[in-house]
Computed example of a mutant assay.
Amino acid sequence: MKKHIQPLIVGIGALFALGLVPGCSGGSSTEATSSPAAPPETSTAAEVPASARYMADMTAPGGETMTIGISVDGSEVAAYACNGTDDEAWFFGNQTAGAIDIKSKFRDTLKADIDGDVATGEVMMDGVEYDFTANAVSGLAGMYTAEADGVRASWVVRPDGSATGVQFSGFSEGDRNFDPFNLDEFSDFDVRNDVRPRRNLGPAAPIEFPNNRPQSSINGTPVTPSLMTGTTRFG
């Protein structure tokens, strides 16, 4: 009887040594392994300043040039684009989470995204698309406008003090009878092709900043241009 018990004890000892007896080894094959920790989520929301001004010079693929200024105050946006000779567009509206998608009175379009110190987007004016990357500006740089005797001059001023501006002097007669200041009932096609071309536009007089105060003239009349903000609105 002792001869049979001794081999059995030896066999069980071997099983312990190999870790094959369930519940007796810390290296059980059924132990769960931990998964790598997921990377932390990063926020992709745009940063929209409470108040900011942006500007850029733009060149279309065909070589046409335009300059744009954008002002943001809270959710409100005002923007002005002009070529310094015979075309301009004012845009008034709102931004939502940094996204801008607005039309001018004469159905030009502005689409842009604001993120911190940069605004990127495109302007469509008179059938020409201008892409831009506009950097934030401060000091005297921004959009200005002034009026005298029913004539309005507007400028986009760069950080170095140079400016691009256009003067608007009303409308010429056209073949169709439109009220150019009440265009809501007309189609984009009619406005772009029958009203927009009737605007009397020309280069604005230079804008200067003696003692950091804006000065210019409209048809020889001295004016003091005003800096435009995101809340600016006019007809």
Score class of each variant (00 low, 15 high):
129 E>L: 07
121 G>N: 00
99 A>C: 09
93 G>A: 11
95 Q>A: 05
142 G>C: 12
99 A>T: 10
137 V>R: 03
98 G>I: 09
96 T>I: 12
95 Q>T: 11
128 V>P: 04
128 V>K: 12
96 T>C: 04
115 D>A: 12
102 I>P: 11
94 N>F: 14
140 L>E: 05
100 I>D: 06
131 D>N: 14
122 E>M: 00
134 A>K: 10
114 I>L: 04
127 G>T: 00
106 F>D: 02
109 T>C: 01
126 D>A: 15
104 S>D: 13
141 A>K: 07
112 A>D: 04
126 D>N: 14
118 V>S: 03
106 F>Y: 15
134 A>R: 06
99 A>L: 04
124 M>T: 14
139 G>N: 03
106 F>L: 15
135 N>A: 15
137 V>I: 09
119 A>I: 06
125 M>S: 15
115 D>E: 01
93 G>I: 02
125 M>C: 13
133 T>Y: 02
114 I>P: 01
103 K>W: 15
129 E>C: 10
119 A>K: 08
94 N>V: 12
123 V>P: 02
97 A>L: 03
127 G>S: 01
104 S>Y: 08
118 V>T: 13
133 T>S: 15
97 A>E: 09
117 D>N: 13
112 A>S: 09
136 A>L: 07
142 G>T: 12
121 G>W: 01
135 N>S: 14
96 T>W: 02
108 D>R: 02
133 T>L: 03
129 E>I: 10
140 L>S: 14
95 Q>N: 09
120 T>L: 08
106 F>N: 02
116 G>D: 12
104 S>K: 11
111 K>W: 06
119 A>L: 07
118 V>L: 13
114 I>N: 01
133 T>C: 11
101 D>W: 08
105 K>C: 06
125 M>T: 12
113 D>M: 12
105 K>Y: 00
99 A>H: 10
110 L>D: 01
127 G>W: 03
113 D>L: 08
112 A>T: 04
132 F>M: 00
112 A>K: 02
127 G>Q: 04
122 E>F: 00
121 G>Y: 02
122 E>W: 05
100 I>V: 14
109 T>G: 02
136 A>P: 02
135 N>M: 15
98 G>Q: 11
116 G>H: 13
139 G>R: 06
117 D>I: 02
93 G>S: 08
134 A>I: 08
109 T>I: 10
141 A>Y: 00
128 V>S: 07
133 T>N: 13
124 M>N: 14
132 F>A: 06
130 Y>M: 01
123 V>K: 03
106 F>I: 09
129 E>V: 11
110 L>I: 07
118 V>H: 00
116 G>S: 13
102 I>D: 10
137 V>F: 04
119 A>S: 04
121 G>V: 04
100 I>T: 10
